[in-house]
Each structure stands twice: as C-alpha cells, then as structure tokens.
Amino acid sequence: MSGNGNAAATAEENSPKMRVIRVGTRKSQLARIQTDSVVATLKASYPGLQFEIIAMSTTGDKILDTALSKIGEKSLFTKELEHALEKNEVDLVVHSLKDLPTVLPPGFTIGAICKRENPHDAVVFHPKFVGKTLETLPEKSVVGTSSLRRAAQLQRKFPHLEFRSIRGNLNTRLRKLDEQQEFSAIILATAGLQRMGWHNRVGQILHPEECMYAVGQGALGVEVRAKDQDILDLVGVLHDPETLLRCIAERAFLRHLEGGCSVPVAVHTAMKDGQLYLTGGVWSLDGSDSIQETMQATIHVPAQHEDGPEDDPQLVGITARNIPRGPQLAAQNLGISLANLLLSKGAKNILDVARQLNDAH
C-alpha cells in the first residue's frame, strides 16, 4: 500500500501541473516587456503551470559599433537563445518575429505568432524639431536608422535628408537623439515604442507609400524545439490566425527572394473581405531603383483552434497545428507568387547589386 502511495506522490510531482516552463529572452527592456506579455497570456491559459524567465545577451546586443547589415552573420539576435533551447536550458524563446530568419536551424520551429501590433515605422524627432515631419525637416538634416530597408525607401522619398546608421537598443538610440546634436530624427518601429509606453515620442507614423515595413514587423514569434510536442501544444494558444497568415505570406515572399538583413526588402499586408493583399518591394541601397507589386488571394481566416493538420510540417519556419492547413498554404503560395513576379521584373539584379555594395563598404 505504502509503495503505491509513493508512486502516486511521484506521479503528482512529475505531472504537468508541477512543471516549471523556462522562457528565454534577450536582456533589453523591450525584450523583457514583450516576454512578460507572452508569459502573462500563458499564465492565464495555464494557471497550474509556473513560468521562469531567463534573460541573456546576444551577438546583436554586444556589437554596437557596426551596422547590422555589415556584421555579416545571420541570427544576430537569436543564436545564443537557440543555443540555450538546444541544450534544454529553456523550453521556449520569445523573439520579435522580424529577427527570426525565414529558414531556422534544424530542430527549431516557430510554435506561435502572437497578435500583431502596429507594424509601421515611426519617426521620433529631436526636441528642437518636435512638430515637424520628415518632409518639413531642414535641408541636409541627419536621420538615424539601423535599417537598409528604411534608408533606401526614405532616401527616395525625401532626397533633402541624409540617413546615417544608429545602433543600440531603444533606450540607447533615444538617448543619442536627445543628448547629442548629430541626429534631427530617428526611425523606429511603432510597436516597440508603444510597448515601452513611449507613445508621446511618436512624431509621425510612416504610411506604406512612404515606407513599407519589415517582414514580420510588429509581431512576436515564440520559438521552440520542433519535436517538443508538449510545448508546441502549450504555445499553440498564442497563435493569432490573421497575423499568422499575413506573416506566412510575408516570410514566403522574403524567403523566395532570398532577402535578408543586408538587402532592402519591404512588405505591406492587409486582410479585407476574405482577401489577403500582399505588397512587396525591393530597392537599391540608395533607393534610386525599385520594383513594387501587389497581389491578392482569397483566404478564409479560420477561428482559433479549428482542428489543424496533425502532421505539422513547417511552413517558412512556422508550425501551427491548430490552424487549418489550406489557408496557410494559400498564404505561402501568395508570397511565392509575388516573389516570382518581382524576380521576373529584375528584382534579383537589384538585390545582387545591393548585396555587393553593402559587402564592399
């Protein structure tokens, strides 16, 4: 009898209710805020589980004197976190989706994509230029951005401005803007500013005609071990179906173009009346040469937790077992079709030249 009692006690200790789920994140304040929001949602869904947040620095956090596009290494903000995932030191990792490459290392998958916040870019102005827009900034004003995508589009749109690289986390960039006289304004992701509670610093939100956004911008991705079915089931509740389908289309477009950090590629997606609209573009580094096109596809946005595919093969690095396969494939095909259209119009040449120029500098 006593033996059975011990077995029952052991089973209770090993039951999922007692389990601590370890969540990996970057150390920056924004990353911690984003991770806290994901953990809060998981806690609400699984009140019996405990969650421990483990923060670590990544290569991208450490190399702050070089433009991201020049470092010449993929997975700048993800490699150390993936290493911890691989060694079973954490069970899942919360990322900004735009930091996750469209091809993940073997053994990993994006197990959830959370509801997207505003994906557009924002302009934050130096205190002396508050009330201005990019259009009304004085001639030769210097605007800071760490992104080739932003610089290429904005140089084309605002030729009277000069664009220079600015690195560091959000706090560091804002301090550089406010305390030094080098920059009249800087460009940042609206979602990051909003998550930090800095709505009052948003001086201008850039519309798609001015600057399309990065693939996955404004959404959070939760990376897990691809074979860890328990954790895949656990994080599945975080999937937002519309965000998922938009981001599958965007990531398929980028992957098929073979774009990345070192080339200016941008997108804009919208879901309306059962249609998914995808606009994508590529630019030369100075913005003088560009190709942009829009395509659409009829896609039914499923309700969360309709029964999805059981075999769960990944699409552009994403596993969404609780979302039907048909809409996911339709979104992926839309991204591939748009990429093929741009490639047929000469996108590869623009991107190759951009890559060579970026590598040469």
Rank of each mutant, 00 (worst) to 15 (best):
T102N: 10
Q217M: 01
K345A: 14
P47W: 05
C114E: 02
P302F: 05
A189K: 05
Y46T: 10
A303D: 15
D233H: 13
L206A: 03
L92H: 05
G274H: 05
Q356K: 07
S147W: 06
L170G: 12
L220Y: 09
T172V: 06
N118R: 12
T269R: 00
H83I: 09
V38A: 08
T190Y: 07
L206Q: 03
A270V: 12
A40L: 09
I53T: 07
H239N: 07
A55V: 12
L68A: 12
V130Y: 14
G218K: 01
P138E: 09
G111C: 03
E293N: 09
C261E: 03
E52Y: 08
E306H: 12
F108L: 14
V215W: 00
P119W: 10
L278G: 09
L42I: 09
T59Q: 13
F158K: 06
R175E: 06
F51A: 07
A219E: 01
A266E: 05
L134P: 04
E89C: 08
D311Q: 11
P313Q: 07
I318P: 00
I299V: 12
T145S: 10
K140F: 10
T109I: 06
E135R: 13
A270I: 07
D312P: 03
G197C: 14
R201K: 09
R246D: 03
L220A: 14
C247M: 04
K227N: 08
R116I: 02
Q181M: 10
M212T: 11
K140D: 13
M295A: 12
S290M: 15
A331E: 03
E80Q: 10
I110Q: 00
L357V: 10
A303I: 15
K227R: 08
P101W: 01
T133I: 10
L174Q: 06
I186R: 02
A151P: 02
N200L: 05
L193D: 03
V130N: 13
P101F: 06
Y277K: 05
D91P: 05
P241R: 02
D307C: 10
K87G: 08
E82P: 01
G72Y: 11
A297Y: 04
D178T: 07
Q314G: 01
L238M: 15
C247W: 03
A151S: 10
G203F: 00
R251M: 10
V143W: 03
L193K: 00
E293K: 12
S290Y: 13
H239M: 05
V316T: 03
K43A: 09
A266C: 02
G218L: 04
A122V: 13
L285K: 10
L134N: 01
D65S: 10
H83C: 13
Q292T: 11
V224D: 01
E223P: 04
R175A: 11
H83R: 13
P302S: 05
V90L: 12
A44S: 11
V267L: 10
L232S: 05
Y213E: 14
D121K: 01
Q204E: 05
A360G: 14
E310D: 06
T102H: 15
N88M: 13
H120F: 15
Q292E: 15
Q292S: 14
D311T: 06
L206R: 03
I71V: 09
M271P: 02
N340F: 07
I323Y: 10
Q50H: 10
G197R: 10
K140L: 11
E293T: 04
G287M: 14
E52I: 12
V215N: 00
V94H: 07
V224A: 06
